[in-house]
Amino acid sequence: MSETITIDGKEIPFKAGQTIIEAATAAGVYIPHLCHKPGYKPHGSCKLCTVNVNGRRCSACTFPAATGQAILNKTQELEDNRRKITQMLFVEGNHFCPSCEKTGNCQLQGVAYYLAMKDNHFPHFFANRELDASHPDLLIDHNRCIFCNLCVRASQEKDGKNVFAISGRGINKRLIINSKTGLLKDSDIEVNDCAVQVCPTGAILEKRKGYSTPIGQRIYDTQQIDQVSLTQETVYE
């Protein structure tokens, strides 16, 4: 008999070494997340996947599953606060979905839809962020970066490079590029790198591809992110 945890009362098996989110995903239970991606080293920074484990709040993407855990996931309180955390990400950067090339394919937007976010709730920061369009095939719009660290990890773990890093402190955090000039064109990034494809928002974009799929026919235009996530991310069997 394998060991189990319960999530919202449902019994779920787990294997030794699995995190809560891994066990949940394998069992078809969606826990909202942005900085987590299966197959990548857990990061635990966005805090969307916060669940309640035996009365204590933990990040499901970093906390190991263990026997006896009674986990709360889809409660009103957690969903309300996840929505507020998502709203924090929206006001921190400059996210204008209607004019963004990534609209419909953006996970930040997908999570916002899922959590029924209707407005930004908090005052906007109107951060002064830059655009790096120096690369012939790629573009970075820092306005849309949510510091999920996925491109940093993708470049290191998957591409065997080290193109990105998160620098700065506090609200002045910024994504930096590993090149003498600090510009993307002088780095060794390539279009097909995982670091390009992994961006959950429209911060890293491939040029001349923005509208190849019409708006209205894109991923989250037609499906909820929980369904997309569970079909794409169930890779643990």
Partner: peptide
């Protein structure tokens, strides 16, 4: 606000929201 390391969303953004 000055001392938040900026790693997690609630503290990075939240401390500035508290200030505002």
């Amino acid at each position: 606000v000055d001392e938040s390391c900026g790693f997690c969303t609630p503290c990075r953004v939240g401390t500035s929201l508290l200030k505002k």
